[in-house]
Computed example of a mutant assay.
Amino acid sequence: MPEFLSDNKKYYTPVEYVFSKIGGTYKMPILWRLKDKIVRYSELKKSISNVSDRMLSKNLKELCSDGFLEKKIIAEVPVRVEYSITEKGNNSIPIISALRDYGFSLMEKDGINKK
């Protein structure tokens, strides 16, 4: 496959492109937690261990700007922010599920106990 550019970055495969959008430590866990419900920032923060506010905010912003999530600001005191998954985000769930299942399978074969 020929290389291609997106956002001034060169990619060599579609898989590389996908992982630039949903890869990393936090994006897939965020999408997974939003697959069935609308979630507030504080709920996400509590449910993802070891994520800093900076990293969570950065990943949420990127997922929103890439169209995987929608951010809704509710004007009340205090202001409430809710995140929901979009159709584009929902389309990533089967891929995340397959990677998750494969990860569990590898962990089992390597003798790693899942928590």
Results as ranks from 00 to 15, higher is better:
residue 65 S to H: 07
residue 54 R to W: 08
residue 47 S to W: 05
residue 62 E to I: 10
residue 13 T to S: 15
residue 29 P to H: 12
residue 99 L to A: 12
residue 56 L to V: 07
residue 25 T to G: 00
residue 98 A to E: 14
residue 19 F to V: 02
residue 67 G to Q: 03
residue 10 K to D: 04
residue 59 N to A: 05
residue 40 R to E: 15
residue 93 I to E: 04
residue 29 P to F: 06
residue 99 L to T: 05
residue 83 Y to C: 02
residue 95 I to W: 02
residue 94 P to W: 07
residue 65 S to Y: 07
residue 47 S to K: 13
residue 115 K to T: 11
residue 12 Y to T: 10
residue 101 D to R: 10
residue 104 F to G: 03
residue 1 M to E: 06
residue 83 Y to Q: 01
residue 23 G to T: 03
residue 81 V to M: 08
residue 68 F to C: 04
residue 9 K to G: 01
residue 54 R to E: 10
residue 91 N to I: 08
residue 77 V to H: 09
residue 101 D to V: 08
residue 103 G to D: 14
residue 8 N to L: 11
residue 112 I to P: 05
residue 92 S to E: 07
residue 45 K to W: 09
residue 4 F to N: 01
residue 91 N to F: 14
residue 64 C to T: 14
residue 58 K to W: 07
residue 61 K to M: 04
residue 96 I to Y: 02
residue 110 D to S: 09
residue 18 V to F: 01
residue 65 S to G: 00
residue 46 K to G: 08
residue 113 N to W: 03
residue 44 L to C: 06
residue 95 I to M: 12
residue 20 S to V: 01
residue 42 S to V: 09
residue 37 K to W: 03
residue 103 G to C: 12
residue 87 E to R: 01
residue 100 R to V: 07
residue 5 L to E: 15
residue 21 K to V: 13
residue 19 F to C: 08
residue 59 N to Q: 13
residue 30 I to Y: 02
residue 35 K to E: 15
residue 32 W to D: 11
residue 96 I to D: 05
residue 6 S to A: 07
residue 55 M to T: 10
residue 55 M to Y: 07
residue 96 I to A: 08
residue 8 N to Q: 12
residue 83 Y to R: 00
residue 55 M to F: 05
residue 77 V to W: 06
residue 19 F to S: 02
residue 17 Y to N: 03
residue 89 G to R: 00
residue 12 Y to I: 03
residue 40 R to P: 00
residue 10 K to G: 03
residue 67 G to S: 04
residue 76 E to L: 12
residue 42 S to R: 11
residue 102 Y to G: 04
residue 48 I to S: 09
residue 94 P to Q: 08
residue 20 S to T: 03
residue 28 M to G: 12
residue 2 P to H: 05
residue 109 K to S: 12
residue 69 L to K: 01
residue 95 I to K: 02
residue 115 K to A: 09
residue 54 R to K: 13
residue 44 L to G: 06
residue 71 K to P: 01
residue 38 I to T: 13
residue 67 G to M: 04
residue 55 M to L: 11
residue 87 E to T: 14
residue 52 S to K: 04
residue 5 L to Y: 15
residue 73 I to C: 10
residue 79 V to M: 10
residue 3 E to D: 11
residue 49 S to L: 12
residue 10 K to E: 14
residue 110 D to H: 10
residue 115 K to R: 12
residue 66 D to R: 14
residue 109 K to V: 06
residue 6 S to I: 01
residue 21 K to M: 13
residue 42 S to K: 12
residue 52 S to Y: 03
